[in-house]
Design a protein around this nucleic acid. Structure first.
Lengths: 353, 353
DNA sequence: CTGTTAGCGCCTTCAT
DNA sequence: ATGAAGGCGCTAACAG
């Protein structure tokens, strides 16, 4: 049986310096590639560096330099392609600008939001991009951080602060357009799957639905708005298929069942489709369905899913650029808000081919 | 127009101490809740803390304490529900143990793998869990980190190191079982979607497929193994629906087209299904399809997808526990390897109801 | 119960 | 082209 071995200490600048017969300062210059160092000395140093497997200590470095070249990205549902795409876009911009990106996940509670903010703030990241849904306690802590001087940019979080930029998709309009599309097809009894009447307060696309219904003189029947059975936002995001499935079942059991439904996102829509087909309904003839996000999957469901596309990459890019600006300026710049348009993508789940 | 405001400096222990009329040490005791402090003093200190919006500096703290109470998690395709579930499980264990989790994404290249490892190592995380696919350069850098003394646990990465634990699902067996299932249904010409003959080297489930074919005296025709057109692993993970779709198209154009296909994951399978249906094939009568991962979606495709379930949560939990053990022991413990069983989930995409 | 000392590892500044 | 000094902000260890 293999024995366990004693742990090693990390080598430091001083260790390298001693080993190479120079001072720590010279090693620093070599490692960071600034200042003049003779070719010969550099050679010796690099040799020692690789011999001792040296890695510079970012804590000490950050402490001294007062910056870490790292930013934090706080994401909610990590399984959502939307979040993944956002992360990719942010990372692209940031790595081009020389920043690392650390992602923290705050799945459903204010507590996790706060934990994420705190751990990033403690580590003195140079800035934070927050893409989780708003909540009172989280907003309060966020305000503290911002006022404590950490550059913050929000993506799609319904929270305004004079020193934080806000990038968002126009989900109110997106929800409106999706609903108006169904109405224009002649539907009058249109359900919504994915919120309870109370939990939907912060969901813009849901408000868009309500607004479209009202403006067209239609009633959004309370029984046609179905969400999770329990309270809170505990449902893991990636199993929203289950939410859609169960929500649809509930709608199908209504005496006056909707002829169309708008689902809060594409996965919910897929679950709803599944329940509808199981009940023998034809889509879209017996039931029309609209999703939200236009995940890659949406083009491959049967029938393909009508949905609303958000400019995901653009939101990520714009947010990252805003953060870079904010981190770069000595002054705290004035707040910027940017709302980006969504686009209805009509497929066969609402309009037969 | 709102003017920009000058940036603030973060308050330090010394600032608080001065404001409260005590020494920094006392403030430290209050802030960290250890050591004796009189109620009265504590009160004064806490007051100053909130008045000055104090946050402790994790860099300085980590530098002094030689630990950061933070671990890194390196993920490949963040949009994959598998990765999300893994992250959740890891986070659960870690936060119970008092660690923060920073996630780094390394989407497709060795370069990004290395960048992720380096940024985590620089920040002196206490340990790292790596769940990206193996690659030569990445492995080399990883070995350096491990030998430099950073506790590392691997999940499903085909790379062995005497000082790193390895947790993996038995994807070889999973791939074998999926293929054997198709064979048992009478299929002889079975395609594989998701690798090029060269890029599949590290994919265990693909090897399971090859092994099952061989053991049953069947030929895995090279033309029936289709992947991405281009080279490398550049295809974003979350659009593997496209890979499945295009792969299937290619298979359908063969003179002797397969009667069954095994897709590298569920999203690929969905894309393949979509192409098959578009071509007018009935599933499973004309074409049987098997996926991999059992994402929540798999139960809701039409027909529901036969797939192989990995014990995702368990892998995350076991890995996290192994890392905690490794970080906690003064010695570097001997290597542990744990292979966890997968389970074939038979649904209607292979067996008509 | 509170304070003092010292140093974690690095880099900015100034000197040589 | 290299070195020396000092301090970033915090806490372990020891005094009192």
């Amino acid at each position: 049986m293999r024995r366990s071995t004693p742990k090693k200490r990390h080598a430091t600048l001083a260790d390298i310096a001693a080993s190479a017969g120079v001072t720590p300062m010279t090693v620093s210059r070599v490692v960071n590639g600034n200042g003049y160092v003779s070719a010969e000395t550099r050679e010796k140093v690099l040799h020692a560096v690789s011999a001792l497997n040296y890695r510079r200590n970012g804590l000490a470095r950050g402490l001294k330099r007062q910056r870490t070249d790292t930013i934090g990205l706080v994401l909610g549902d990590i399984a959502n392609p939307f979040a993944a795409e956002l992360a990719r876009a942010v990372r692209e911009v940031m790595s081009a600008e020389g920043y690392n990106v650390f992602i923290c996940v705050s799945e459903h509670s204010a507590r996790e939001d706060i934990a994420a903010f705190d751990s990033l703030a403690d580590h003195r990241v140079d800035g934070v991009i927050v893409a989780t849904r708003a909540n009172k306690l989280g907003n309060d802590r966020l305000a503290e951080l911002i006022e404590g001087g950490i550059p913050v940019v929000l993506i799609g979080r319904d929270f305004r602060h004079p020193q934080a930029d806000l990038i968002a998709a126009d989900n109110l309009r997106g929800g409106y357009d999706a609903t108006a599309h169904l109405i224009s097809l002649g539907h009058k009894n249109i359900g919504f799957i994915g919120v309870t009447p109370t939990s939907g307060v912060g969901l813009r696309r849901y408000h868009g639905y309500l607004e479209a219904m009202r403006e067209h003189g239609l009633k959004a029947d309370e029984r046609s708005i179905v969400g999770r059975a329990g309270g809170g936002d505990q449902w893991p995001g990636y199993s929203t298929e289950a939410m859609g499935y169960e929500g649809m079942k509930k709608l199908l059991s209504l005496r006056r069942r909707p002829t169309a439904v708008f689902a809060r996102n594409d996965f919910t829509a897929v679950g709803a489709m599944s329940a509808a087909k199981e009940a023998g309904l034809r889509i879209p003839q017996d039931l029309a369905i609209v999703g939200y996000d236009d995940v890659p999957l949406a083009a491959h469901t049967s029938p393909p899913l009508t949905t609303v596309r958000q400019p995901t990459r653009e939101q990520g890019r714009v947010a990252a650029e805003a953060l870079v600006r904010r981190m770069g300026s000595a002054e705290t710049p004035a707040r910027e808000e940017r709302v980006m348009p969504c686009e209805l993508v009509v497929r066969a789940s609402t309009v037969a081919e």
